[in-house]
Simulated scan of single mutants.
Amino acid sequence: MSRAVIYEKFGGPEVLELRDVPEPHAGTGEIRVRVTAAGLNPMDWALAARPEAAARFGVTLPSGFGYDLAGVVDEVGEGATGFALGDRVFGGALSRAVADFVVLETPAETLWPTPDGISDEVAATLPVAGLTASAALSVIGLKSGDTVLIGGAAGGVGVFAVQLAKLAGARVIGTASASTFEFLRELGAEPVAYGAGLADRVRALASDGVTAATDLFGTETAEAALELGVPAERISTIAAGPNPPGGVRATGGVDASPGSAKQLTDAILAGRITVPIAATFPLEKFRDAVELQADRHVHGKIVITV
């Protein structure tokens, strides 16, 4: 037997259960990953809480939980390609990651080698948040000299977006609560409070104007950017649904360019990007981790160790 977090009805963290389940094994064309760390994202509890969200991703009950994972390949099925026994890997497995083992088909488009020098805990934060940040900036053509407004800059995706934007040579203004201002300054962003009057506050901070924006939380930042005169094609959203306001660009991690995962790990190894991990929890305390994630006031990433 092995363990996995399972839910049989939709709801809050209380519907999640850590259960003994039959141990999965790699079949033909498959590999098995012994999971050592699973990073949490808002998407995870949204799928467990909202049937309409689960339906959009094809998730049905009963379901496992989580997407981001890191671990070690410990079984390789006949005909499997791309990975060998003992390989350290990180990647994604929709609604299956928080478990002792995950079986994946090969070739695996959502699995990458974990470089020496990057811990499994750090690697487990990258698939959703890192690739989503990369896609959100890529789709608006962010370049050196831009002044970019990033909404939700202190969140899990935001911490990557801020640093990637700085690496691109942009000036970064990030929306956040006052309690996270110093945290954002350490990442290289100029913080501004979210809420009513956002456009006016940004205008006062950036007298030469804003040239690009990405909204990582909802639509407030996108709407403020439109009010500030940023062209719709230079504004992206990740959480506004398929039809965001004003014709701005909806995107997500699936739109990240090939090589984005390696670019992230290379930047981390070179010390150009840091990964703030707000908290780690053992698998036995997974519900505490999910409750903290669902609170949406975390500075950085939350990781479950398995």
Rank of each mutant, 00 (worst) to 15 (best):
R3K: 12
R3Q: 03
A4G: 04
V5A: 03
I6P: 03
I6S: 02
K9H: 09
F10M: 05
P13Q: 01
P13I: 00
P13F: 04
L16H: 02
L18Q: 02
P22D: 09
E23K: 13
P24Q: 12
H25P: 04
G29R: 04
E30H: 11
T36D: 04
N41S: 05
M43S: 08
D44S: 05
A48D: 04
R50V: 00
E52G: 03
E52Y: 05
A53D: 03
A55N: 07
R56W: 02
F57C: 01
G58S: 05
P62G: 01
P62A: 01
S63E: 04
G64T: 00
E75T: 11
E75W: 08
G77T: 04
A93N: 03
S95M: 11
R96S: 06
D100S: 04
F101I: 07
V103R: 06
L104W: 00
L104M: 01
T106F: 07
P107H: 02
L111A: 06
P113T: 13
G117P: 08
I118R: 02
S119C: 10
E121F: 06
P127V: 09
A135E: 07
A135I: 15
A136C: 08
V139F: 00
G141K: 13
G141Q: 05
K143Y: 06
K143I: 03
S144R: 05
S144Q: 06
G145M: 02
L149S: 10
G152Y: 02
G152L: 03
G155Q: 02
G158T: 00
F160A: 08
A161T: 00
V162C: 15
Q163E: 02
K166W: 01
L167Y: 03
A168Y: 07
G169E: 04
R171M: 06
I173G: 02
G174S: 05
T175M: 10
S177Y: 11
A178K: 15
A178H: 15
T180L: 11
E182K: 07
F183P: 14
F183K: 08
R185I: 01
E186P: 07
L187K: 11
G188C: 07
E190V: 15
P191T: 15
V192H: 07
A193G: 14
G197E: 15
L198S: 14
D200Q: 14
V202D: 11
R203G: 10
A204R: 15
A206V: 14
A206E: 05
S207H: 04
S207C: 01
A212M: 13
A212R: 13
T214C: 12
E220V: 11
T221Q: 13
T221K: 10
A224G: 04
E227F: 13
P231G: 08
R234L: 13
I238S: 00
A239S: 12
G241I: 13
P242H: 06
P244T: 15
P245Y: 06
R249H: 09
T251F: 01
G252S: 15
A256L: 10
A261W: 10
T265G: 14
D266L: 02
I268S: 12
L269R: 14
L269T: 00
L269M: 09
A270E: 14
R272V: 00
P276K: 06
A279W: 10
T280Y: 03
F281Y: 15
F281L: 06
E284G: 11
F286D: 05
R287W: 10
V290K: 09
V290A: 13
A294E: 11
A294H: 06
D295Q: 09
H297V: 12
G300S: 11
I302N: 13
I302F: 12
V303N: 12
